[in-house]
Simulated scan of single mutants.
Amino acid sequence: MISRLGPTELAASQIANQLASLGFLPAFALASATGSLLSRAMGAGRPDIATRIGWRGAGVAAALMGVLGALFLLIPGPLIGLFNRSPEVLALGTTVLAIMAAYQVLDGVAIVLGGALGGAGDTRFRLLVTLAGAWLVMVLGAWWLAPRYGVAGAWGSALLFLVFAAGAYGWRFASGRWRRVTL
């Protein structure tokens, strides 16, 4: 959908997405570690430790992603300038990075708590949240928002998806229902 907006919008989005990968790739590694440690604690019959592992993993991810989000807000020009110096791309990229800064913490929490739920075997809930959120919130949201608000609308739908995913995973993890999943 972003590519339909034009080459400048696509360039700004691609650059911002490359910069965001500096955060979500380590978050995925942290999610794997959290899920593995949580699974081990559950296997040892220690749901109390498993719960602490999940929340601590989410906290570490939120802190790391918060630092990246702050960088996106504080120095967007130099970051985007690593890839492209076009004034139009810099302007649009700054807008995209500001939206991404708003969701970095949520992204980290969603990724790690999703990994924790996966480690506990609560994969059906994770699948439903991902499918519903990705298609109904992010894709349909981008389809509706991008023509009206441009690249900011498209990335705004990603922000809405991450609010939904982080909220759903946080609710599920806090509820403790993942502790009763049988494999």
Rank of each mutant, 00 (worst) to 15 (best):
S175D: 08
A165C: 09
L10W: 13
G35F: 04
S157M: 11
S157N: 05
R172C: 07
L64M: 15
L160T: 04
L136K: 05
W155Y: 15
T8L: 00
L74R: 03
P47V: 03
L117P: 03
D48T: 04
E9N: 13
D48R: 13
M42D: 03
E88F: 02
G141V: 11
R46S: 02
A62H: 08
Q104P: 02
A12N: 03
D48K: 09
G69P: 01
G167S: 11
E88G: 02
P26A: 12
G77H: 06
I15P: 00
I75Q: 03
S157W: 09
L25R: 10
L30G: 01
L145G: 02
G43S: 09
V137T: 13
I75A: 12
L82M: 14
F173W: 00
S86W: 02
V109T: 10
P76T: 06
M138K: 15
V105Y: 10
V151G: 05
G170A: 09
L90P: 00
R148Y: 08
T123V: 13
L71N: 01
A101L: 01
W135G: 02
W155T: 08
I49R: 15
Y169D: 00
L64S: 08
G118V: 06
A146V: 12
S175Y: 15
V181W: 06
I2G: 10
V109C: 02
V129F: 01
L25S: 08
P26W: 13
S39D: 07
Q18W: 01
R172K: 12
L128H: 09
A134K: 01
G108E: 09
S21E: 05
L145N: 05
A27G: 07
P147S: 03
I2K: 14
R177W: 13
W144A: 14
S32L: 13
V129P: 04
L64T: 08
F164P: 05
F72D: 00
V112A: 06
L68P: 01
F24K: 02
L71T: 04
L37V: 08
V151L: 07
F28G: 14
L10H: 12
L19E: 00
A152D: 01
P7T: 15
A168N: 07
A154R: 11
T95W: 12
D107K: 00
L25Y: 03
I2P: 09
